[in-house]
């Protein structure tokens, strides 16, 4: 998988897909779908729902590839953003709020243990270091929201605090994270 990622230039493929090139679209799908399926599955926790979200994601890719701007974001980041948005929207449509937050620390640990060598290791270390600087509750909220798609209401349930408090934690946490990462 990671080899495939390295072999093809995703930016070039997205450019071709913007011109409605179906072969390029298939190549893009082959190179990225397993990763994006992992992303939608992490959020939705259900293979059928995650498959549906994946399908919707690639239809959006087909329709919106011309909006991808190489100068502004890495292609995989753009694709992941589409997949996460789609999966989170799907989650919000159902959302009997989940309890818990069992494997959030796990996600943080794995920040330092990449299976894909695509992100600059220094950047990874910076994020890890800055997440560790946050209050624990802020860190948990940021990670559960990003990785597992938790809403404010769900975070409130998981932490036993009102949504308004969660909102403040998230915002304070994000600002601290930004100022820490910009400093590094």
């Amino acid at each position: 998988m990671s080899q495939t990622m390295d072999l093809v230039d995703l930016s070039d493929l997205l450019g071709l897909v913007a011109g409605q090139d179906k072969r390029a679209f298939k190549s893009l799908y082959s190179a990225t779908s397993a990763k994006l399926f992992g992303i939608t599955l992490r959020i939705l926790k259900d293979r059928d729902l995650a498959s549906e979200a994946l399908q919707e994601t690639y239809i959006k890719v087909w329709q919106n590839a011309s909006r991808y701007d190489e100068g502004k974001s890495r292609p995989i980041t753009w694709l992941v953003a589409l997949a996460r948005n789609t999966a989170i929207d799907s989650l919000r449509r159902r959302e009997p709020a989940r309890m818990g937050g069992d494997n959030d620390e796990d996600a943080l640990e794995r920040v330092a243990d990449p299976q894909f060598g695509r992100v600059d290791p220094a950047h990874r270390q910076t994020l890890k270091g800055c997440l560790e600087e946050l209050d624990e509750v802020q860190r948990r909220c940021v990670i559960l929201a990003y990785c597992e798609g938790y809403s404010r209401a769900e975070l409130g349930k998981a932490t036993g605090k009102p949504e308004a408090t969660v909102k403040t934690w998230l915002r304070r946490g994000l600002l601290r994270l930004k100022s820490c990462m910009d400093r590094e």
Binding site: G38, S73, L127
Partner: peptide
């Protein structure tokens, strides 16, 4: 998106 993207690597 860029700042948080390392969190996708664990997937």
């Amino acid at each position: 998106r860029g700042r948080l993207s390392p969190l996708d690597e664990a997937v």
